[in-house]
Simulated scan of single mutants.
Amino acid sequence: MAEKKTTARPAPERPASYEAAREELVEVVRRLETGGTTLEESLALWERGEQLATWCQEWLDGARERLDAVLADAPDEE
């Protein structure tokens, strides 16, 4: 049975902010929709897009948690 070669990839670089990650994600989607890339390039773009989307969601979840904490500590205004 032939053994499948794997190449170690460096860990993807995380953008410095939500806005930077979202901007890069928009560019990845644009490139995928435009086409004209090889299968390997498309797969790499897809993987990068998935990672960016995960990071964006983590930032949004963190922001929601912070807002919820602030709202929970705020006095009722009745």
Rank of each mutant, 00 (worst) to 15 (best):
residue 45 L to Y: 03
residue 35 G to Y: 08
residue 26 V to C: 01
residue 22 R to L: 09
residue 8 A to H: 07
residue 74 A to T: 12
residue 53 A to F: 01
residue 53 A to H: 02
residue 67 L to N: 09
residue 53 A to E: 10
residue 23 E to S: 07
residue 62 G to K: 07
residue 57 Q to P: 00
residue 3 E to P: 00
residue 17 S to Y: 02
residue 19 E to M: 08
residue 30 R to H: 06
residue 21 A to R: 03
residue 55 W to R: 02
residue 25 L to E: 13
residue 61 D to K: 04
residue 37 T to L: 03
residue 49 G to K: 01
residue 77 E to S: 14
residue 55 W to H: 06
residue 68 D to Q: 15
residue 47 E to H: 06
residue 9 R to H: 08
residue 13 E to C: 09
residue 37 T to M: 05
residue 8 A to R: 06
residue 32 L to V: 13
residue 68 D to P: 00
residue 31 R to C: 08
residue 75 P to Y: 01
residue 39 L to Q: 13
residue 57 Q to H: 05
residue 10 P to G: 12
residue 22 R to E: 12
residue 50 E to F: 03
residue 33 E to A: 06
residue 29 V to Y: 00
residue 54 T to M: 09
residue 12 P to S: 09
residue 16 A to C: 05
residue 19 E to A: 12
residue 11 A to C: 04
residue 64 R to W: 06
residue 72 A to R: 04
residue 60 L to P: 00
residue 40 E to W: 02
residue 53 A to D: 10
residue 78 E to F: 02
residue 14 R to P: 00
residue 43 L to N: 05
residue 35 G to W: 03
residue 61 D to C: 08
residue 58 E to D: 14
residue 68 D to K: 08
residue 56 C to W: 03
residue 4 K to I: 15
residue 43 L to I: 11
residue 64 R to F: 06
residue 63 A to M: 14
residue 44 A to Q: 06
residue 70 V to L: 06
residue 7 T to Y: 04
residue 48 R to N: 04
residue 13 E to P: 00
residue 72 A to W: 01
residue 36 G to E: 07
residue 34 T to G: 05
residue 61 D to A: 11
residue 48 R to L: 05
residue 66 R to V: 10
residue 52 L to I: 04
residue 11 A to R: 08
residue 74 A to C: 13
residue 2 A to K: 13
residue 5 K to G: 09
residue 15 P to N: 08
residue 11 A to H: 06
residue 37 T to S: 05
residue 59 W to M: 14
residue 54 T to F: 01
residue 67 L to W: 04
residue 4 K to V: 15
residue 11 A to Y: 05
residue 63 A to S: 11
residue 60 L to C: 04
residue 59 W to K: 10
residue 30 R to Q: 05
residue 2 A to E: 15
residue 48 R to E: 10
residue 2 A to D: 15
residue 69 A to G: 11
residue 18 Y to E: 14
residue 31 R to D: 12
residue 4 K to G: 08
residue 10 P to R: 14
residue 30 R to A: 08
residue 59 W to F: 11
residue 75 P to M: 01
residue 20 A to H: 01
residue 41 E to N: 06
residue 15 P to H: 03
residue 35 G to V: 11
residue 46 W to Y: 09
residue 56 C to Q: 09
residue 28 V to I: 11
residue 55 W to Y: 12
residue 65 E to H: 07
residue 64 R to Y: 03
residue 19 E to P: 00
residue 5 K to E: 14
residue 20 A to G: 01
residue 12 P to R: 12
residue 57 Q to K: 12
residue 48 R to V: 06
residue 46 W to G: 04
residue 7 T to Q: 09
residue 36 G to Y: 01
residue 26 V to E: 11
residue 11 A to Q: 11
residue 17 S to E: 08
residue 8 A to T: 13
residue 17 S to W: 02
residue 22 R to K: 05
residue 47 E to I: 12
residue 69 A to D: 11
residue 20 A to E: 11
residue 42 S to P: 00
residue 8 A to E: 15
residue 28 V to C: 01
residue 43 L to P: 00
residue 49 G to W: 01
residue 60 L to Q: 13
residue 25 L to I: 13
residue 70 V to G: 01
residue 2 A to N: 14
residue 25 L to Q: 03
residue 24 E to P: 00
residue 1 M to N: 10
residue 17 S to G: 02
residue 36 G to M: 02
residue 66 R to P: 00
residue 44 A to N: 07
residue 50 E to S: 12
residue 2 A to I: 15
residue 16 A to R: 07
residue 78 E to M: 10
residue 41 E to D: 14
residue 71 L to Q: 14
residue 51 Q to V: 09
residue 15 P to M: 11
residue 66 R to G: 02
